[in-house]
Design a protein around this nucleic acid. Sequence first.
DNA 1: ATTGCTTCCTGAGCGC
DNA 2: TGCGCTCAGGAAGCAA
Length: 269
Amino acid sequence: MPELPEVQTVVNGLNEKVLGKNIISIFEDRKGTIQNFVQEPICEFGSISKISRRGKFIIMETSKDLKFVIHLRMTGKLIFEKYPERKSTHERANFIFEDKTKLIFDDTRTFGKIQIYQKKDKIESLEKLGLEPLSDNFTSEYLKLKFENRQAPIKNLLLNQSIIAGLGNIYVCEILFRAKISPQKQGNKLSFKKIDMIVIKTKEVLTEAIKYNGTSISDYRNVDNKSGEFQKFLKVYGKKTCECGSDICKIKQAGRSTYFCEKCQKIGE
DNA sequence: ATTGCTTCCTGAGCGC
DNA sequence: TGCGCTCAGGAAGCAA
């Protein structure tokens, strides 16, 4: 569910609300939510010293050299709560701070996970990620190299986290629409010019979506339990009619819905 | 190595 | 009202 802009919005909110707070306890309301979780009789977690994002992962580091690596998957939410007596509807885990505030991990479909690591640990899930699309080293040359010998549709390749970290179904649909590329076009058949358009539009769409605090189609909320605004600017995802007047097509690719306009996104080009 | 299919789980929305 | 079906923004794990 949450993709790069939504995760970045959550990270921004966490930096505002919980940075520096001392963790006095962590609870797991649903078994399996927290991995590598050892609740020692006296386990000191420390205070939150750094909060960052890598792909769709949220990374919270503590003064005791712990790293919480959090993935929200489809329906995960991190909600900051001033009044810890209030319980969230699908609360799966929570962090209680010394000042009696609380960070709730709420996740309807329970796909989300919190992994606990020591600072020295190798974190495999992060190591296999591809480049950050908003970084300077994410270029058309890089993508061209990655798309060589790839016959899979461009839609699938853009969803592949080991190529680009952070894109999901909504933004891939939007990027391909804005770049005027058919989602069914094979990766190795794209011209350098088209690949360049993908890079430009990826940076453009993501930057704009972050500015509007992400896209809320259904579940996504920020740490204040508020919706994002970018859904107002979507051009194809979930749409019936294109701005050109044609009908938007809806097909299945890699098991998920692809929305695109056959007239604006021609396979032959 | 690459590709695609299945699976994890809950809830909303639809047609009957 | 209620049942059963399909769908949902992710990605690991597996088979071909």
